[in-house]
């Protein structure tokens, strides 16, 4: 049985304006009804396969997002829902916004929009399902384990150092 036949969603409101959260909920209600595909909105991170994160990351909720992500079992995919979750959106210049979801955890699918429409969201989830199956197959062969948030932070740090080094090299040249 493929995991994509019945993936469970977990939704967390980062620091969004509510618009995207309401659209996430609306996607599960009769008009759009993703539940007919076996997609269930759950509140428990340990039951979830797909993490829908809305809104940017701020200093108070970054640990919450990391904890939720680390608690989810493998295989898992992360969707950044809405433009704020993609890169900060209209709130990018705010003093309390660190950036999009990918500043703290790895993101697999980006769904832009302000507010994101349920149709776009469903499209994003369908794309995520493919990734979920791929990850499950790799896991069976013992080739894959998802990054923890601490490893991701380390990777970001190294990436930042490399970029800095490249910048100084360019300047020297």
């Amino acid at each position: 049985m493929r995991i994509s036949k019945s993936p469970w969603l977990l939704h967390y409101d980062g620091s969004s304006c509510n618009g995207c959260d309401i659209e996430v909920l609306a996607a599960t209600t009769p008009r759009f009804d993703v539940e007919r595909f076996g997609i269930i909105n759950t509140g428990n991170p340990k039951h979830a396969d797909i993490f829908l994160c809305t809104g940017g990351v701020n200093s108070q909720n970054q640990d919450v997002i990391r904890q939720i992500y680390d608690q989810m079992p493998d295989p898992k995919v992360v969707l950044a829902c809405g433009i704020c979750a993609c890169d900060g959106g209209i709130f990018k210049d705010c003093y309390n916004i660190l950036g999009g979801t990918d500043t703290v955890i790895p993101v697999d699918v980006y769904v832009p929009g302000c507010a994101v429409r349920p149709e776009a969201l469903i499209d994003g989830v369908v794309k995520a399902l493919k990734l979920l199956d791929e990850k499950a197959d790799k896991m069976k062969r013992g080739e894959y384990r998802s990054m923890t948030s601490a490893e991701y932070a380390e990777a970001l740090k190294i990436k930042g150092q490399l970029a800095e080094a490249a910048d100084t090299e360019e300047k020297d040249a």
């Binding site: 620091s15 108070q60 705010c94």
Partner: peptide, 14 residues
């Protein structure tokens, strides 16, 4: 409270 604080009022300067 404080999990969703963005600092929106400060955007008037930008």
């Amino acid at each position: 409270i404080g999990f969703v604080h963005r600092g929106l009022e400060h955007l008037v300067t930008k």
